[in-house]
Design a protein around this nucleic acid. Structure first.
Lengths: 341, 341
DNA sequence: TTGTAAGCGTTATCAC
DNA sequence: GTGATAACGCTTACAA
């Protein structure tokens, strides 16, 4: 059933039916009701390609996830993606997802713009000196960055206060008397990791506590790395009495390393992990329940989608920086620093 | 740059340019070369909506992931999705992703078909008595199921031999002398879980080993459940001497429960887990390295995409069942059964 | 308030 | 081998 058939049935013109369905003011209420009812009855839905062709819009948001750039395709991305998709569903937009390898990254963006597949882009996992904002600018495509680009860049973005969150977590550990704190951070080429380290250093500096570079780790956020680096950190002497983890997955590995070393938390060693809130690992149910800096990444997705859509619909371009709060949730994995061995 | 502009530049008709670019035979080689070169030079790309409107195809594969149906949105889905997307990218298809809640599930399928957003569907995580194949059939939309639908249903699907894999794993444990084996299975309403239990039971029956129903668990595949159910199973008396886990994530929790109980693997308790191959948890790097039934789920995605595309392009409908092999990878977590306590 | 008609940018069907 | 021209199904001036 297409528009012409429907309008024939109704004895109205295509234009009138189209306007009735699209909520135009000038349509008489009675006519509109008749049209809407008939559309319902026949299950009419406007063909998306025809509509997109006529309006010049794709009603689609694009996410390009480049494989092999060091960003492991982990649950963070999935949760974020779901957030985007939820918002899009509700607002009748589609999601276009592509996963090129690094060599075809730029071509993929250009392809999507040139063919009109999407109206705007979400840039994930901004890297230091990220080329993507530049590409998108020269393609004149709207985009929103999830995370921040360096340094106070003019790109629209939605981010959490990574620096503040890690400074606060660090301060909490310092308050508890910890002086040797290890940081299990994300990969160094990501902006968020740099910001977290900044927060860590800032809190330490504020108390005059020196930072031991050998306790700073930048790594992929896998269980395995959590275990390996945790073990390495614990071999230091004196060993750290507390850990800050950039992700719950890392913390899982760290817990294993601690158990392996016969250390108990929080008696021998405190832990704070950043929790992006995955459905399949709950920090409150771990042993011990983990103290976390918490920010549901799915919600970030909704915010990003909403902002991107605003940019797409904006008659005059604008940039916006949205900052999402991070909670520090105290549970059982943090306690007073032990005497050093 | 659109087709008209390009053909004007070339002094050719739109029809000729279009045909040259689409590889039609009748175009003179020289003409084609000239056209291709110009298209390259001006960065011409056919507008996807116009093309889709003209051809009646969307060149898009749809994945509908319904939230809150008990399928946790876990890394399995993401890895699978990447596989689909990789294949799609290479073959110049798009992915349309939506995540309705359960109440809008059927409407979402209908919406996508009616609006022509996609040419075919991938059905994930088939459930017992799954309504989706029925919906898609009545919508006359091509689809491929990832997994099997009950029982030997006529739906096209790509699946692994869940029953065979778990039978083989169970047999291996029985060979090692284990007689009390606990099964940490996925949620009962999924077909794959039913098949795995079948394999388990078949192997036990073949040796005349009775199955203790209190050692059979059907659960969401989270770390937490692995821990809780592992703990519960270990409290039985006599306790199980081996575990079969439906996922590596469950095994992670189980390992925690074992450590908690002061049990060592494989001395006190053997483990075999099913490994879908995630980038962020590597069974070979766990302590002990886990014996697994292994089947990279990303590869499933590629197979499903390829089969779905064949169905979409088929002039005459057909059904195909593709079975992917599962490896049993022996590592350190399986050993002879201990004397029961 | 409704109808007419001109796009939107392709592909496909004819002629030549 | 190439060129007109008619779809494809919708939106949107412009007319009435």
């Amino acid at each position: 059933m297409n528009l012409r058939e429907l309008s024939d049935h109704l004895g109205l013109s295509q234009a009138t039916v189209s306007r009735a369905l699209n909520g135009y003011r000038e349509i008489r209420a009675e006519t509109r009701a008749r049209v809407v009812e008939a559309a319902e009855k026949y299950g009419y839905r406007p063909n998306s390609h025809a509509r997109n062709l006529a309006t010049g819009r794709a009603r689609t948001l694009a996410m390009v996830f480049t494989l092999g750039t060091g960003l492991p395709l982990d649950p963070h991305f999935l949760e974020f993606l779901v957030g985007v998709s939820e918002w899009a569903s509700v607002n009748d937009l589609s999601i276009n997802l592509s996963t090129p390898d690094a060599s075809r990254e730029e071509a993929t963006y250009r392809h999507i713009v040139r063919t009109g597949l999407a109206d705007g882009f979400i840039v994930n996992g901004p890297r230091v000196d990220d080329p993507r904002p530049g590409w998108l600018k020269s393609l004149r495509a709207p985009y929103v960055v999830h995370g921040s680009t360096e340094p106070a860049a003019p790109d629209s973005c939605v981010d959490i206060d990574n620096e503040g969150a890690f400074a606060r977590a660090t301060a909490h550990l310092l308050d508890l008397g910890h002086r040797r704190i290890a940081l299990l951070n994300g990969p160094g080429h990501y902006v968020f990791a740099a910001h977290r380290e900044l927060g860590f250093r800032r809190a330490c500096a504020a108390r005059g506590v020196p930072v031991d570079p050998s306790l700073l780790f930048a790594t992929e956020m896998t269980e395995e790395q959590g275990f390996l680096l945790g073990r390495r950190a614990l071999a230091a002497s004196p060993r750290p009495t507390a850990f800050l983890c950039a992700s719950l997955i890392l913390a899982l590995g760290l817990l294993r390393a601690l158990a392996d070393a016969g250390l108990s938390t929080p008696r021998d060693c405190s832990i704070i992990a950043h929790d992006d809130v995955f459905p399949f690992v709950n920090p409150a149910s771990l042993r011990p329940a983990l103290t976390t800096t918490r920010s549901p990444i799915r919600e970030h997705g909704r915010h990003v989608a909403e902002l991107l859509n605003r940019k797409i619909e904006a008659s005059t371009p604008f940039e916006a920086h949205e900052m999402i709060a991070v909670d520090l949730v105290l549970r059982e994995s943090t306690g007073p620093a032990p005497r050093l061995v």
